[in-house]
Design a protein around this nucleic acid. Structure first.
Length: 260
DNA sequence: AGTATGACCTGATGGC
DNA sequence: TGCCATCAGGTCATAC
């Protein structure tokens, strides 16, 4: 479910309410999100800050780091009663934070340091410099969609925003990055930033599941130009939006505007 | 290095 | 109503 803009929206809601707060109780239900290892009981631990790291929500605590990935169907909600798919609850004085995750593709990590699977991810799409983006892209010879989805290349891009940015940059998702011109890669970098900022401004995209910490949907799905618009006219040229399978992912693009 | 496939999970949807 | 296949904002691991 959540990609960078959705996680950013969640973090912006979490940070001001949790910063400085002390956990007074933790409740964990056995599920795959823990991958066999419950975090410790964090009672007494204080939240120093909450930040986004790619698609992870990271809480820096006074005694370690809590990392939460929401997978496809994860939600972090304030003040709700535990139900069927509740996987964890962190109780604070006067509020509780609940992790719900129907499909259990999310994960909860804990460590004295930022856990390894989080720390090894690539730079943030909103922080990577244009020069670094271009030079690193040229070192790979895979379809640009594959590279953008690779969290070791950049942390935070997912299927929706990859399709949307490639449309905006007029790039076919199957273009190999080592064959793209510098100008084309720079276009991708620019469009990526503009797109992500716009999506954050609209509270992210809600296709079916995604809601913020208050249970509200984002509105950026109304601005999608290709994602989930198969057969509808391209807003630029009018030809029907195509949907193909690339890298085992549904891939949406305009065959007229996005040439190889 | 890259790609392809299946696995991991549950629920919604559409066809018959 | 039911049954079956297909699909879904994401990673992983394994095998060519």
């Amino acid at each position: 479910m959540p990609e960078l803009p959705e996680v950013e929206t969640i973090v912006r809601a979490l940070a001001p309410r949790l910063r400085g707060q002390r956990i007074i109780g933790t409740r964990y239900w056995p599920s795959r999100v823990f991958r066999g290892e419950f975090p410790p009981d964090l009672s007494g631990a204080r939240v120093l800050q909450v930040r986004r790291y790619g698609k992870f929500v990271v809480a820096d605590m006074d005694r370690g780091f809590l990392g939460i990935h929401l997978g496809m169907t994860g939600k972090l909600l304030f003040d709700v009663a535990p139900q069927k798919h509740t996987r964890a609850v962190w109780d604070f004085a006067g509020l509780s934070l609940t992790l719900e995750d129907i499909r259990q593709f999310g994960r909860v990590l804990w460590g004295d340091e930022l856990p390894e699977p989080i720390a090894v991810l690539g730079p943030d799409p909103l922080e990577v410099s244009r020069e670094e983006f271009v030079s690193r892209a040229k070192q790979h010879r895979m379809p640009i969609k594959a590279l953008l989805l690779n969290q070791h290349f950049l942390r935070g891009m997912g299927n929706i925003y990859t399709d949307e940015l490639l449309f905006r940059a007029h790039l076919h998702p199957g273009c190999r990055t080592d064959e793209l011109s510098k100008a084309a890669l720079e276009r991708a970098w620019i469009e990526m930033r503009v797109l992500l900022e716009e999506a954050i401004g609209r509270g992210g995209s809600s296709i079916s599941d995604y809601v913020n910490t208050a249970g509200e949907k984002g509105t950026f799905q109304l601005e999608h130009r290709v994602y989930a618009r198969e057969g509808e006219p391209c807003i630029v040229c009018g030809s029907p939006i195509q949907k193909i399978v690339l890298l085992q992912r549904g891939t949406h693009f305009c065959a007229q505007c996005q040439r190889r």
